[in-house]
Amino acid sequence: MSPQIDADGIPDRCLSFTVSSTWGHFKRVGRTVTKQTYRIPPRTTVAGMLAAIVGAERNSYYETFGEDNAAIAITPESDLRTINIPTTGLGTDPDQDVTTTAKKRRNYSLTYQETTGDRQLHAYEVLADPSYRIDVALEDEEFYQKLHDHLEAGTSVYPPSLGKSEYLATIENVQAGQEPEPASSSGPYDIDSIVPIELADAIPQGGVAYESERSPAVMERHQGGRRTTRFDDYVFTRRSDGTVKTDAGTDVKPVSVGNRIVVFR
């Protein structure tokens, strides 16, 4: 049976795994010239990666990862380092058609865009050796069981990646049936995962630098495509051994998964 998620967004059990790659890039919304990256994969990106593993069709899985029937926690397991990589690319020509002309005996003649023009230089900001621990619970029983079986077997329909398709990812340390338990203390909490709070709600710590991001969290079908219906603000630390300290007075519900304190969203 699939996990059940209570009114606070806490599941009775979850799947846990580590995903890592040599490089990662999660394009920031609204950036055009410099290809900047989120430090943490957006919740929608994690949903897309899991959909690729089970082979879900495009635009078919948004309800599976809705606000009330999915819970995801993301914990950085590596220091979040970025570097800039200059990349040359060819601009698209709006007057150029890419056509396919069918001929007899299944032979095809392809016409491509002219590629002898000048290239454009763009700087891609990429994550170096990123690694994240993902805890996920889904009330969609069929999707959850497929995901469980693929993770346990180490298989996937489409290869998972961290952002760009060429940044192929490795999935390791899979644990099924993890049972989140309420954090034992009454606060303040030292939370290992990213925390969906405002920066002002994090308690300062000596030697620990906080950062915050705002990224897409939930999507829905819209006019044959998709649109984002919720953005999340969250706080994290760049160091893998850092934690976010927050008081019990915030709306977050920390839980213990294994030896980590995480917050689902």
Rank of each mutant, 00 (worst) to 15 (best):
I5P: 03
P182T: 01
Y132P: 05
A52D: 13
T22S: 14
F236S: 02
P41F: 03
V126Q: 02
S186D: 12
S78L: 04
D79M: 05
T22A: 14
P11R: 04
D247Q: 05
C14E: 00
G89I: 06
T92H: 15
Y61P: 00
T100H: 02
T37D: 02
S186Q: 14
D12Y: 06
D232W: 07
G154Y: 09
H222V: 11
L90R: 12
T100G: 02
L110Q: 11
D12H: 15
A47L: 09
H150R: 14
L127C: 05
D135Q: 09
S21V: 08
R260K: 15
R265K: 14
R221S: 13
I261N: 03
S20M: 11
E77S: 14
I203F: 05
Y189A: 00
L151T: 07
T155P: 02
R214L: 08
S78D: 13
Q223D: 15
V257A: 00
I74E: 03
Y167W: 10
R227E: 15
G163A: 06
D149T: 07
T229M: 09
I40Q: 00
H148G: 02
L127D: 01
T99Y: 06
R265V: 10
E211S: 15
A7G: 07
R43T: 07
G154S: 10
D233W: 05
